[in-house]
Every structure is written in structure tokens, then in C-alpha cells.
Design a protein around this nucleic acid. Sequence first.
DNA 1: GCTTGACCTCAAGTTAAGTTGAGCTTGTAG
DNA 2: CTACAAGCTCAACTTAACTTGAGGTCAAGC
Lengths: 147, 147
Amino acid sequence: MAPVRELTVGQVAMRSGVAVSALHFYEARGLIRSDRTSGNQRRYSRDVLRRVAIIRVAQEVGISLAEIAAAFQSLPEERTPTREDWNLLSTAWRDGLDHKISQLKKLRDGLTDCIGCGCMSIDKCPLRNRDDRLAREGTGARRLIAP
Amino acid sequence: MAPVRELTVGQVAMRSGVAVSALHFYEARGLIRSDRTSGNQRRYSRDVLRRVAIIRVAQEVGISLAEIAAAFQSLPEERTPTREDWNLLSTAWRDGLDHKISQLKKLRDGLTDCIGCGCMSIDKCPLRNRDDRLAREGTGARRLIAP
DNA sequence: GCTTGACCTCAAGTTAAGTTGAGCTTGTAG
DNA sequence: CTACAAGCTCAACTTAACTTGAGGTCAAGC
């Protein structure tokens, strides 16, 4: 089959389902990278699709772009990441994910823990007080979900 | 023991762990309510603590204030919500939560589905394409997590 | 009866994650 | 070789969820 062609932004946008402007944005944030043609247009290698897919999935479960960017630092810069590379990455996220999963289950299972417990006295509630390290950090809007 | 005293904002803030400004904000958004003293100061009934606790937990798992507000509509206005009321509420959230939990598990379990699959062709990926109804809706920042 | 720490309101600022638009350049199909 | 869709940059706008600040009011203790 044909050698792996480079992709234009438009093509990546279409195949990944994210807007061109979002791709520009991800690039500015260091989440993806591109080469440029002599005429300064972006050309992406095929594995950008993988990256974008991961970005979207991670976002969907509440991981911020900043965290994703940080995690992506662990990926090899010049080599196309292998399955192993990706697995390392998700392993790094595992603890945060585990915690989030358990929080979700509790909420799903009727909030009963929180309702039955001494929720009134916040410091005793198993739901609330499980990670208040996600506490203050700077001003403005808070991240919706903890790492 | 003493009759259930009403709480001031400061007290609620301290006991719930959220800032006074946030309580004002939640009230403006219709998530909590207060009575006022003759001098126009807020007085909260004790169950506001429960509400705030639920708000925080729900937020932590990615439910937006708007959704929480909507869900709270189902709570009785004048009667203090019973455990049953709260359970109804979380039942209403169950589907969204179930979906989110499964997404999280997939991400946690090595992203392998996504990596092994035809992720490149986005429309086939089990991770990506499981709910793209969370798609476009208005401009500006996107909600981090789907309902 | 006054002082001092809570409160109150309202406007403006902040962060994240993008989108929109203006003005200008590329590249490809006819 | 030219038209025009697709790109490029940069600045400004948007939403959610709060925080900060200014300017003024309450209330509880001494």
C-alpha cells in the first residue's frame, strides 16, 4: 500500500472529529506537534490521530489538558510511541483513575454512604474527605475532577 | 439537646469546607436557599450541609452545577429531603454514572481497547464512539464530562 | 454605645478550553 | 495561470465556576 502520507489539519480534523481550531490549540499547548511545509502549512504524521483520540478520551473522564500534556511528556519525542509507551502512560494515571472510579460508584450507589454517615460533620464523611488535596490552587474556576 | 439552630454563611462555609463566596454563588444558581434575618443576613437550615456535600461530590465526578441544579428540582421544596429523596436523585444520575465508570475503567485498563482497535478510523473505536451525543452544544468551553 | 469582625451587594477579574473573525497566504484543479 | 477552498496568525469573545475588591451594613462583646 501507499507509503504513510502526512496529513493536513483538515484531514486530521475530519478523521479525529475535532475542530481545526482545537488542533491548533492542542499544538499551542504542546499536546501534538506538526511539521511545516515550505509554505508554512501544518503536516501531521499519522500517529497524531492516536494522540488526539487519547486526548479526547482522557478529557471525557475529567483529565485536564495540562495533565494530559504532562503525561505525554513521558512519550518518546522522535519515535512513534508503541503500545508499550501508551500503557506506561495509562499506568501512570491508574491511581487517579481508581480513585475516581470508586467515587463514581459511591455516588451511583445511592449516595448512601454520605447520607448515612456523619456527613454533617464534613471531616468524617467518607465521600467528601477522601481527597481534599485537590483543594485550593490558585484562583478562578476549579478543575472539575481531581488527578 | 438544643433545638436545631440556623446557621450563618460563615458557619456553613466552615463546616462544609467551601468558601462563603461559593455559597453565595450556589444560592444565586438556585442550588441552595436561605432565609434572611431582619438585617438581611443569610440563615441556613441544617440540611444545607447535606446539599453542599452532595454538590461537591457530584462536581468531583464531573457533574455540572447546572445538572445538579436540575436534579435538585426533584427534591421537595419545603420538606427536608429524606434519604429516599436523595436516592431517587442518584438513581436519576445512574445511567450517566454507569457510562462514565465504564469509560474510566477502559482508560485505566491500559487504553488497550483503543490502541488495539481501529482507533485510527475513529468511527470504529469503542472508546471514542460510545457517546458522541455529548457533541457540540453552543460555543465556548466544553463541559469536561458528559451527563 | 461603640468598635470590630461578620455580612451584604455588585462589578470586575481569573482559568480552562476552545471558537469566531479579520486579514492575508497557499496550493491545487480546471 | 488563475480561482478559490484550505491554511496561517493573532486578537477578541464565550462558558463555567468561582474569587477579589470596593463600599457600606449588622451584631455581639466590652
